[in-house]
Measured scan of single mutants.
Amino acid sequence: SEEELIEKAEKLRKEFEFIWNGIRFIIRENADEIRRFEELLKE
């Protein structure tokens, strides 16, 4: 039914948001290391 689809979509959206926030947190935490690594690659 349509309601089930909406519920599934909402659940997926929440899971995606949770994963995305996790990725963003990891990137933020490691931003300095990532930048340093990029500098090494440029040399």
Results as ranks from 00 to 15, higher is better:
Ser1Leu: 07
Ser1Cys: 14
Ser1Asn: 10
Ser1Ala: 09
Ser1Trp: 13
Glu2Gly: 11
Glu2Asp: 07
Glu2Pro: 05
Glu2Gln: 08
Glu2Cys: 15
Glu2Leu: 11
Glu4Thr: 08
Glu4Val: 07
Glu4Cys: 15
Glu4Pro: 08
Glu4Arg: 08
Leu5Cys: 11
Leu5Asp: 05
Ile6Thr: 07
Ile6Cys: 14
Ile6His: 12
Ile6Phe: 08
Glu7Leu: 06
Glu7Thr: 11
Glu7Asn: 13
Glu7Cys: 13
Glu7Ser: 12
Glu7Met: 03
Glu7Pro: 06
Glu7Phe: 01
Glu7Arg: 10
Lys8Leu: 14
Lys8Trp: 13
Lys8Ser: 03
Ala9Ser: 07
Ala9Pro: 04
Ala9Gln: 06
Ala9Arg: 04
Ala9Val: 11
Ala9Trp: 13
Ala9Gly: 03
Glu10Tyr: 00
Glu10His: 04
Glu10Gln: 05
Lys11Pro: 07
Lys11Glu: 07
Lys11Leu: 08
Lys11Ile: 07
Leu12Ile: 11
Leu12Phe: 02
Arg13Asn: 05
Lys14Gln: 10
Lys14Val: 12
Lys14Ile: 12
Lys14Ser: 09
Glu15Leu: 15
Glu15Cys: 15
Glu15Val: 15
Glu15Met: 15
Glu15Ala: 15
Glu15Pro: 02
Glu15Gln: 10
Phe16Arg: 00
Phe16Asn: 01
Phe16Pro: 00
Phe16Asp: 00
Phe16Met: 07
Glu17Asp: 02
Glu17Asn: 01
Glu17Cys: 14
Glu17Arg: 02
Phe18Gln: 01
Phe18Gly: 02
Phe18Ile: 04
Phe18Trp: 13
Phe18Arg: 03
Phe18Thr: 01
Phe18Ser: 02
Phe18Tyr: 05
Ile19Gly: 00
Ile19Asn: 01
Ile19Glu: 01
Ile19Tyr: 05
Trp20His: 00
Trp20Thr: 00
Trp20Pro: 00
Trp20Gln: 00
Trp20Leu: 09
Trp20Ala: 01
Trp20Gly: 00
Asn21Asp: 09
Asn21Pro: 03
Asn21Cys: 13
Gly22Lys: 14
Gly22Ala: 15
Gly22Thr: 15
Gly22Cys: 15
Gly22Gln: 13
Ile23Val: 04
Ile23Ser: 00
Ile23Trp: 02
Ile23Pro: 03
Ile23Arg: 00
Arg24His: 05
Arg24Pro: 00
Arg24Ile: 14
Arg24Lys: 06
Arg24Asn: 08
Arg24Gln: 09
Arg24Thr: 09
Arg24Ala: 08
Arg24Tyr: 04
Phe25Leu: 13
Phe25Ile: 12
Phe25Lys: 14
Phe25Ala: 15
Phe25Gln: 14
Phe25Ser: 13
Ile26Trp: 11
Ile26Met: 01
Ile26Lys: 00
Ile26Asp: 01
Ile26Ala: 00
Ile27Tyr: 02
Ile27Gly: 02
Ile27His: 00
Ile27Ala: 02
Ile27Leu: 02
Ile27Ser: 06
Ile27Val: 03
Arg28Ile: 12
Arg28Thr: 12
Glu29Met: 14
Glu29Gln: 08
Glu29His: 06
Glu29Thr: 12
Glu29Ile: 14
Glu29Asp: 05
Glu29Trp: 14
Asn30Ala: 15
Asn30Lys: 06
Asn30Val: 15
Asn30Ser: 14
Asn30Met: 15
Asn30His: 13
Asn30Asp: 04
Asn30Pro: 05
Ala31Phe: 10
Ala31His: 05
Ala31Arg: 07
Ala31Asp: 08
Ala31Gly: 03
Asp32Asn: 10
Asp32Ala: 08
Asp32Tyr: 05
Asp32Ser: 07
Asp32Gln: 08
Glu33Arg: 11
Glu33Val: 14
Ile34Tyr: 06
Arg35His: 04
Arg35Met: 07
Arg35Thr: 02
Arg36Glu: 03
Arg36Ser: 06
Arg36Gly: 05
Phe37Asp: 01
Phe37Asn: 01
Phe37Gly: 02
Phe37Val: 05
Glu38Arg: 09
Glu38Gln: 09
Glu38Val: 14
Glu38Phe: 14
Glu38Cys: 15
Glu39Thr: 03
Glu39Ala: 05
Glu39Phe: 05
Glu39Pro: 01
Glu39Gln: 05
Glu39Cys: 13
Glu39Tyr: 02
Leu40Val: 03
Leu40Asp: 01
Leu40Lys: 03
Leu40Ala: 02
Leu40Thr: 02
Leu41Val: 05
Leu41Tyr: 04
Leu41Glu: 04
Leu41Asn: 01
Leu41Trp: 12
Leu41Met: 07
Leu41Asp: 02
Lys42Gly: 07
Lys42Pro: 03
Lys42Glu: 03
Lys42Trp: 13
Glu43Asp: 09
Glu43Met: 07
Glu43Val: 12
Glu43Arg: 07
Glu43Tyr: 10
